[in-house]
Amino acid sequence: MADDHPADFEEIARRFSHLWQALNSHAHSPDIRKMLIDRVRDALDRGEARFGEADPAIIANSFVLEAMVHDGAATQVYRARHRDLGTLHAIKMPRPDHADDPVLRKLILREAEIGTALRHPHIAGTQTVLRLADGRPALIMEWLGNRLADLLQERPLTPREITDVMTSVLSGLKAIHAAGLVHCDLSPLNLLFDGDLPHLKIADFGIALKAGCRHEEFDLAFAGQPDFASPEQTAGGPLDGRSDLYAAGRLLALLLSHCSAERDEKLEALAIRLSQPNPQDRPENAEAALHLLGSPWKSGVVF
């Protein structure tokens, strides 16, 4: 069998040469040539299964699922490539065994509605929502390849990096709260970046609420990360932006525990102020917290 491989490659090369000549034939108009190239691309994508153990999944005839990056209890997230543009995207969808879960479906559609309405440099972009062949919604988002949670496991952060992270977080929260929303799930798992930490973005609006609402309105007894959820969120009470500020304080305390330098009393004081049990004792809003951080001028960011 091994002796046949060179001949196989020669035959593939010969046929590809003929195909390329046909595609570039002057007998074809530009529109027909474009259509032929698209059909060849389609055949290559669908024929890729012959070289692997499983068929490559293609969504809406446009997105090839390249890898699963999150496999949760109810949802899955994939890295996907647009077949024509070559761009990378994150696609979030219910697990197949949760295809008929009405609560989950409602939450994902709400997340799509919220995400497409928010546009900010420190909020992960939501691009559209698709319906899969089996009826499940699929949320298409910008691809950000790094999580803050993973970075914290790899190395300590400098005080400047911690300030950059908190500037990004509080800036994003300011925009979220200005839209009348509460994120409710701020944690290193949902803070993503693709490049430098100053470009970090808030992601995952799956349990976001309108200010003044409770999670029980969506048949959720509790939603959020226990280590970051505010006392009022844990108690199932109505929430406002100060609940996210509590989570930001818990986040800042975590970042300081991974700091490579000596204690920063100013940042420690801000972490304590943000994470006060009583909402009335926290800063009034994200803009006030940014002022206490004093970072817009240091980082060169204008709000």
Score class of each variant (00 low, 15 high):
P96F: 01
D204F: 00
W143K: 03
L239G: 04
K210G: 12
Q276N: 03
G86F: 01
H199P: 05
A247I: 01
D4H: 13
A149F: 07
H215P: 09
A73D: 12
P188Q: 10
T87D: 11
L36F: 13
A74C: 09
P277A: 01
F218E: 14
L251Y: 05
G212N: 08
R105W: 05
S299R: 09
D4F: 12
K174M: 08
L157K: 03
A22C: 10
A13V: 11
A112G: 03
L209F: 05
E111Q: 07
F51V: 11
S299E: 11
S260Y: 04
G180T: 03
E262S: 14
M35N: 14
D38V: 06
G195W: 10
F63H: 05
E217A: 15
R160H: 12
E268Q: 15
L36P: 08
P6I: 08
Q225C: 11
V182G: 08
M166P: 01
C259Y: 07
V69G: 04
S25E: 11
D45L: 14
W297Y: 02
L144Y: 09
H183Y: 04
V169I: 06
T234P: 01
H5T: 13
D71W: 03
L209Q: 04
A179G: 08
F16Q: 14
I162P: 07
P159G: 12
V77H: 02
L85G: 08
A43I: 12
P279L: 06
H98Q: 12
R41T: 08
P198Q: 06
G241K: 06
L148E: 05
D264N: 15
V77T: 14
N190T: 08
E48I: 02
C184Y: 00
L189P: 04
D164I: 03
I272Y: 10
H26S: 13
H258Y: 03
S168W: 00
M35P: 03
G52V: 01
S257L: 07
H120D: 15
L255D: 08
C213K: 15
F16Y: 13
L107M: 13
L245Q: 05
A112Q: 01
L23E: 05
